[in-house]
Design a protein around this nucleic acid. Structure first.
Lengths: 222, 222
DNA sequence: CCTCCGTATTTTGGATCCAATATTGAAAAT
DNA sequence: ATTTTCAATATTGGATCCAAAATACGGAGG
């Protein structure tokens, strides 16, 4: 019998709904601002409203949806100020995560990062925007989790979630895809040499460009 | 008619339960590690299990309770590592908040801080541990909210929540209460002079002492 | 034509009921 | 005596039903 057989249990309806909704929101299939009609969504997902509502409460805590009593849930919209705030907080937290990670990086960790980077490049070559976003995320989360600070990693993950719906636009541009690959290579290189300052700097550049791009994407619309 | 009449609506059962539970956990009345029996709690609070479960979901998102599918909720327990991690993250976020706050502090803000500090001193004089914790929290949150970064403030608030159950022990000691008052005064003084570095430093001292104290409280037990 | 008000409908909030899973205890086999 | 199995019980997960609030609609009045 496998060691972690207990883990492979059929997911509860609630977990299923949570995953579906998160994916729908972070990929932009459920656009920011859309009000959530519980009855319709529940029927679409083939569950009752109870697990749906609990999933929505979780998403509310993560900032993916907003809630008003007696009015219901909406897919969260980010103002420009919100966007800048989220990226600033990410900057603070990710710097800490990277510095700690550099102190603890094992060869196995580096291998996993290489593998993630390979996935990124593969997705980029195929022009698969969604796969690119997923792999990019995997790359960063792998790095952050090396810090050995699970709560910090969780916070960063939820911050990524809140901007994912907007970030996926970013990879539509081939130039941006190329740029991301180069930046990842620079980060990996710095990590291999245990150059913490440099690694932090590469990520700052990464973020700065992303936020600038997103600002320009957001400003004309809405 | 009052301008914000709409706000003063009777709270939903869910909001009521959320408040009650949060208070119970952060004040330590519901001790860390206690498993939560939904049926019993629901009856005690005079509501059904549905709003209770939704409240628990938000508390899970805030890290106040843990959840395992088919096993239920427990009041979260913090390991020493968790405690250090939470305080480290707080350090990162609060430094940012204070620096931004210093740049934007108005005289009205300072007045509100003075008022909060007066409450702290009053509670300390009366030896009211709970009121002291509340007022101390008000003082800090007032400061952090001056940064004009609502998401940052929210993050910091939830981090405070996760350690509140442990921190309330801290004020049991009269020496600690005296110390906190002095530290607040130092912070206020620095803020009045717009000395950001100094203000950050006073808060770092504040936290460092608290975490040391909590570590010694946590180490022998459990 | 527009505004205001009252009613009808929709949508959310909450309670109860049922199903699925986990836990407990006792009996039986080694 | 210890361990294993299996049944009984307790607890969580989910579905349905009902109540309360909000929204939409239509008519009366200006």
């Amino acid at each position: 019998m496998s060691p972690d057989e207990a883990r492979r249990r059929p997911p509860t309806a609630q977990q299923f709904v949570l995953g579906e909704l998160r994916r729908a929101i972070t990929t932009g299939r459920l656009r920011p601002g859309t009000p959530i009609r519980q009855d319709a969504l529940a029927e679409e997902l083939q569950v009752s409203r109870v697990p749906l509502r609990e999933a929505l409460k979780t998403l509310e805590g993560e900032g993916l949806v907003t809630y008003k009593a007696h009015k219901g849930y909406c897919v969260a919209t980010l103002s420009l100020d919100d966007l800048r705030e989220v990226y600033r907080i990410r900057e603070l937290l990710e710097e800490e995560a990277v510095r700690r990670a550099v102190d603890r990086l094992t060869d196995a960790d580096l291998d996993r990062l290489e593998a993630a980077q390979a996935e990124v490049e593969q997705a980029a070559a195929a022009g698969d925007v969604l796969a690119m976003a997923t792999a990019n995320r995997l790359f960063h989360m792998t790095l952050f989790e090396c810090a050995g600070m699970p709560r910090l990693a969780r916070l960063i993950r939820t911050l990524w979630d809140t901007t994912d719906a907007y970030r996926s636009m970013y990879y539509g541009d081939a130039g941006n895809r190329e740029r991301v690959i180069k930046e990842h290579r620079a980060t990996l290189d710095a990590l291999r040499r245990r150059a913490a300052d440099e690694a932090v700097a590469t990520l700052d550049v990464h973020r700065a460009h992303a936020v600038a791009e997103l600002e320009s994407l957001l400003t004309p619309a809405t």
